[in-house]
């Protein structure tokens, strides 16, 4: 199974809403990481049922602006801020199926995003010096 070109655009927009990057945290935008190629490869690797779930997730996000914002547009037609609003609403949806589908997108996106060398380098620090490590609250350690 593979996504159509417009599904690719929806998926890219959805992933961009979840992993937009942050100048403050020094993290890049997932859309700079060839999301489409990743999704093509992913859809080939996973079983049919999982691929179907991913496709359903893309459709739910794509059409959600109508239900979440009352706007007759797909996710691609929104600003980045509104995309994020839509996905943030879906991920806490009362519907277990809807929020599970969004989690599929987050899970799959995380494989690409957090697997990126630059993102990993930002998330992981070199082995900390002994002095910099967490210490239990002094009072409790002494009591023990």
């Amino acid at each position: 199974m593979k996504l159509t070109r417009f599904e690719d655009r929806w998926a890219e927009a959805a992933m961009g809403a979840i992993f937009p990057g942050s100048a403050e945290s020094g993290l890049g935008d997932i859309r700079a990481m060839d999301v489409r190629r990743f999704l093509r490869q992913l859809m080939r690797s996973v079983p049919f049922q999982a691929a179907l779930g991913l496709r359903a997730a893309v459709w739910v996000v794509a059409l959600a602006p109508l239900f979440v914002l009352g706007r007759f547009a797909t996710i691609v037609g929104l600003t980045v801020t509104d995309r994020e609003r839509v996905v943030a609403t879906l991920v806490v949806s009362k519907s277990y199926v809807v929020r599970s589908l969004i989690l599929i997108l987050k899970t799959m996106g995380a494989l690409l995003y957090a697997g990126d060398g630059a993102v990993r380098a930002r998330m992981l620090v070199p082995r900390p010096a002994k002095a910099g490590l967490v210490t239990l609250r002094v009072k409790r350690v002494q009591a023990a």
Partner: peptide
């Protein structure tokens, strides 16, 4: 957890998620 696996359990979407990625270490 590797960052890719932990990311699923890191709260938030968008900017909130990115902020939380920043404290992963």
């Amino acid at each position: 957890m590797a960052p890719e696996l932990a990311a699923v359990r890191i709260p938030g979407i968008g900017r909130e998620l990115m902020r939380n990625f920043g404290v992963f270490s």
